[in-house]
């Protein structure tokens, strides 16, 4: 059997398992909570309120649409942080399954990212509601938001695969990645305006942060402004490259995972 045919057969056979794993992630996240999936809308709303009060006052951002600005950044950032962290832990979490039965292992990080992405899409409802309330009305440009959102997905999968591989061999990666995620958060211009930094001589900490590029473009689409093509290109290249490296590294090492679990 050729490699391609074998691959196709695996996809058909394990497509169902993939769906089950995604559904399982969503179901178990809010199991036994009274509000269930509504939490993925309340949570960003609450943080938005706190961030608006604190940073709106601190930085004197009195604009009416500042909460929308914050929410865009927060939602994108938290998807990235949650999905990559879930992917990082996914192999160890499914250790008992991996040890006993053959399953294509890339399903674990991939489904972790996917279920978080589904929850993220649900939480976008909050963004639209808040936008409408605060008078940020959608323009046709809103459809362009699909581009940064797609880049975000590819980037999360790529980085997730990379982390999942490294995480099997080194447990420290979980803690290291937590620290790193915090650094990423502060350099994403979630609760401040980036102009001052972009004009300074340390502009690189934003410009070369692919997640900032995604957030910035996503925000532009929501506010009906034009995207920055440079940011789009850079983040897309970064996402593609991370997927390539992540997938290759994963494929190269997946047979050794079981020896380290």
């Amino acid at each position: 059997m050729s490699v391609v045919a074998q691959f196709k057969q695996e996809i058909r056979k394990y497509g169902n398992l993939f769906r089950e794993l995604v559904v399982k992630g969503i179901r178990l996240k809010y199991r036994r909570s009274y509000l269930g999936v509504v939490w993925s809308m309340i949570e960003p709303l609450l943080t938005m309120i706190v961030l608006t009060i604190v940073f709106g006052t601190l930085l004197n951002h009195k604009e009416r649409e500042f909460p929308v600005y914050i929410l865009c950044g927060r939602l994108v950032y938290s998807l990235f942080s949650q999905s990559t962290t879930a992917a990082l832990k996914s192999i160890r979490q499914n250790e008992s399954m991996i040890k006993k039965v053959y399953v294509p292992k890339f399903l674990y990080p991939l489904s972790s990212v996917c279920f978080n992405y589904v929850l993220f899409l649900i939480s976008l409802v909050v963004l639209f509601a808040v936008s409408l309330v605060l008078g940020v009305y959608p323009t046709l440009r809103i459809f362009l938001a699909l581009l940064p959102l797609f880049v975000l997905f590819v980037m999360s999968v790529g980085v997730g695969m990379l982390l999942a591989t490294v995480g099997v061999f080194f447990r420290d990666m979980e803690y290291l990645w937590n620290v790193f995620l915090m650094l990423i958060m502060y350099t994403c211009a979630i609760f401040y305006y980036p102009e001052k930094i972009l004009a300074s001589n340390v502009s690189w900490i934003l410009k070369y942060n692919p997640l900032f590029c995604v957030i910035s473009n996503f925000r532009s689409c929501i506010f009906g402004e034009a995207m920055d093509p440079g940011f789009l290109l850079y983040s897309a290249c970064f996402a593609g490259l991370s997927l390539l490296i992540g997938a290759l590294l994963f494929a190269k090492n997946e047979n050794r995972f079981i020896l380290y679990l």
């Binding site: 399982k24 179901r27 399954m97 399953v103």
Partner: peptide
Amino acid sequence: AGFDMQYTGAENIYLNGAVLG
């Protein structure tokens, strides 16, 4: 193999079936 402890027995039947393909 591949049972999820938080899932109910019924859910695990489908999950386990999926694991076996």
